[in-house]
């Protein structure tokens, strides 16, 4: 074969393989979603959303898990976001590039890659056993707060970095102090970007199962939480629980639960995208 033809053939082959690989990912996503829709659509109803778990699959609802997820994510937000944004402000606006800042930087990058189940072990030892939070909403939220903290910091730093330096210089030139500059000039500009990144991080936390299983979050909770000390369950754990039942009907519940979970995620991601577009435009 002439080199000309070999070159052209290799072009065709690589293009085809690349396209095939890309389609593979998209195809699997389509099949997965179709499979869940097929299994779960029949179970989805108002009663399912507002019902309590039951031994009888057709009566079982997801309300306690849905309420649990909302509780846990709300408390996670309160715990993680101020600390995360504070850390990001320190690293971007105050960090003196010394060893302390560098250490924190490397540490955050690596924490973001630690498996989530390890955070569960930390929380089990620290919150549940040592601090005596028990298996409460507080323990679950604290666990997820540890998990999302590195991601919130990384996203907030990115948003801060996008603020033009000229803005800071202008503020300093008027005699403003560092904190006045940050509070009045930098943060308002960076806030939409920070929120977008934070919402995405929290939407990741909504789907987390393993760390909450590790702290012993209960898989059967027939009531919605009534406070941060209350026992709780969340959507992915309820889904996991139904999935481990042998009866076919519970598997349908699991699929329907996944659909609720995905709609929640879609809503958060859509909100984040809307926020980003609105502030860019």
């Amino acid at each position: 074969m002439s080199p000309r033809w070999r070159g052209r053939l290799s072009d065709l082959v690589l293009h085809g393989l690349g396209l095939g690989a890309t389609l593979l990912g998209l195809l699997v996503l389509a099949i997965l979603l179709a499979d869940i829709l097929r299994d779960g659509l029949g179970r989805l109803s108002w009663d399912f959303l507002t019902g309590l778990p039951s031994r009888r699959a057709e009566n079982a609802g997801i309300f306690p898990a849905l309420a649990g997820t909302v509780w846990v994510i709300a408390v996670t937000t309160v715990l993680a976001v101020p600390i995360g944004i504070g850390a990001a402000v320190y690293l971007e606006e105050y960090g003196d590039r010394g060893w302390w800042a560098r250490l924190i930087e490397i540490n955050i990058a690596n924490l973001a890659g630690v498996p989530s189940v390890i955070y569960g072990l930390l929380a089990l030892g620290l919150f549940v056993r040592t601090l005596g939070f028990g298996r409460s909403v507080l323990a679950g939220a604290a666990t997820l707060a540890l998990l999302v903290l590195p991601v919130v910091i990384l996203a907030s730093r990115e948003a801060l970095r996008a603020v033009p330096p000229s803005l800071r210089e202008a503020s300093y030139a008027l005699g403003a102090t560092r904190w006045q500059t940050v509070w009045h000039q930098v943060l308002p500009v960076a806030l939409p970007g920070m929120l977008t990144g934070t919402i995405l991080a929290l939407s990741r936390a909504i789907g987390e199962t393993a760390p909450l299983l590790a702290i012993g979050a209960l898989t059967y909770v027939p009531f919605a939480p009534d406070g941060i000390r209350s026992p709780f369950t969340v959507l992915p754990i309820q889904v996991f629980n139904w999935m481990s039942r042998p009866q076919e009907a519970f598997l349908e519940n699991a699929a329907a639960g996944i659909m609720v979970l995905l709609v929640l995620l879609l809503g958060m991601n859509g909100f984040a995208a809307w926020l980003r577009d609105r502030c860019q435009g």
């Binding site: 909504i206 393993a210 889904v239 999935m243 996944i258 979970l261």
Partner: peptide, 8 residues
């Protein structure tokens, strides 16, 4: 996607 979905 949550990993529990992939597990399913």
């Amino acid at each position: 996607l949550p990993t529990v979905v992939y597990g399913y």
